[in-house]
């Protein structure tokens, strides 16, 4: 049997306004405006429809690697030669 849409493709979702949010690992996400932003996340101040906030994220979040991983990589010198 076919399954009708609810969350995700619901017509009502077109009206939802989202905040762009970010956490301590500089991972970006979206969160409905008006609901308390979960702990550990901060609204960056950009709001809009789903497609607007996702477009914005596309421009500010160019590498999905978490901050701690990027920092660890930066501390390690690039080794072109095996140590053994």
């Amino acid at each position: 049997m076919p399954v009708d849409g609810s969350f995700g493709e619901d017509d009502s979702e077109a009206d939802v306004v989202y905040d762009v949010v970010v956490n301590h690992e500089e991972q970006y996400s979206i969160w409905p405006v008006g609901r308390p932003v979960p702990a550990g996340w901060t609204a960056v101040g950009f709001q809009g429809s789903k497609s607007q906030v996702l477009d914005h994220i596309e421009t500010v979040w160019t590498d999905i690697t978490p901050l701690s991983v990027r920092q660890a990589l930066a501390r390690t010198p690039s080794r072109r030669r095996p140590s053994a």
């Binding site: 301590h24 979206i30 979960p38 996340w41 994220i57 979040w61 999905i64």
Partner: peptide, 23 residues
Amino acid sequence: RGYLADPAATADRFLPDPQGPPG
């Protein structure tokens, strides 16, 4: 971690978890 080279798709499917630890 998410979808490589696709931050928008990652942000769209991976949301903050209000029930989980901070962040």
